[in-house]
């Protein structure tokens, strides 16, 4: 019995050591946090990270001679993980907002988005009825769309909507398919991706937000990567690589000139902007 138990304990100890060895990460490389369930920006297909943000980050890293490895975390964990320094930068379709500006520093914005109102393909709802009069509307918790719905519709007593928050948009769309939601509000590229992949949804209206998106680093940029990111973004934009990457994942998108709208509340946009205007 004792021998057998010893064998058992020894075997598990071996497994522990083996597993620890597997997890030894490259200490030199910067860790880029992504939410790999957010196509077309970042997702995993056949075991590989893919998406606009992923490929663009790889191109920037090559251009600026940086070493970057990706780390996948669920969306609600990403910003806290960056604020805590568990990751060094955030690479996804990240909207610039005032609240986020308080806890992180943005690169120059490389994208601009509007929000789309999605309903089921066979639904009779229109852009007005989908967002009022007892409708139940879903969005990703912690996302700018959710915030907008909360501030502009739910807080308004004259508009009768119920909000539901989801960990990701796939579940929200699935819930709309089962009839638990009347509408889902998501960004333009996510909405177009759903339609391109033949999900039974349609766009009934657009909420124009001109919402800029950017990469982000820890507040105060302790690792001094913001300058490299900004310079890298401009280089891949000017070389045409950016257009190629965007067109590969999202052929229907219009490329906007970089930098897009730069809100004046963002600390990192005070002159001189490292890597861009210095």
């Amino acid at each position: 019995m004792r021998k057998k138990l010893q064998g058992l304990v020894g075997g598990t100890a071996f497994a522990v050591v083996g597993a620890l060895g597997l997890n030894a990460a490259n200490a030199e490389a910067l860790v880029a946090g992504v939410e790999a369930s957010f196509p077309p920006w970042a997702y995993v297909e056949d075991g590989e990270y893919k998406g606009i943000a992923i490929d663009a980050m790889r191109a920037i890293a090559e251009d600026q001679d940086m070493e970057v490895e990706f780390k996948d975390l669920p969306w609600p964990s990403l910003i806290p993980a960056l604020a805590k320094g568990r990751i060094d930068l955030l690479v996804t379709g990240l909207n610039i907002t005032e609240e986020r500006n308080e806890v992180l520093d943005f690169s120059i914005p490389w994208w601009e988005n509007d929000d789309e109102v999605l309903v089921a393909e066979d639904s009779d709802l229109n852009v007005v009825t989908a967002l009022c009069c007892g409708a139940t509307v879903g969005a990703q918790g912690g996302a700018t769309q959710y915030q907008w719905l909360e501030d502009n519709l739910e807080a308004n007593e004259d508009v009768d909507v119920t909000l539901r928050s989801y960990e990701d948009y796939v579940t929200a769309i699935e819930d709309m398919g089962t009839g638990r939601l009347d509408a889902v509000v998501t960004s333009t590229d996510t909405a177009e991706d759903f339609i391109a992949k033949d999900r039974p949804v349609k766009i009934v209206g657009t909420i124009q937000q001109n919402q800029p998106q950017a990469l982000a680093v820890q507040k105060g940029d302790p690792n001094e990567i913001l300058g490299k990111l900004n310079a890298g973004i401009m280089n891949i934009y000017e070389s045409g690589q950016w257009t190629e990457i965007v067109k590969e994942y999202s052929p229907q998108s219009t490329i906007r000139s970089i930098p897009t709208t730069m809100p004046d509340y963002v600390d990192a946009y005070e002159e001189p902007i490292p890597g861009y205007s210095d």
Binding site: S37, V44, E45, K71, L73, V170, E174, F194, R199
Partner: peptide, 24 residues
């Protein structure tokens, strides 16, 4: 464990769901 970034079975399943945008 996926909530803290361990890519185990459940997270791999989510990858498939999101890269095909469905099939939950």
């Amino acid at each position: 464990a996926y909530v803290i970034g361990v890519v185990e079975l459940t997270r791999q399943a989510k990858y498939i769901i999101s890269s095909t945008q469905g099939n939950i």
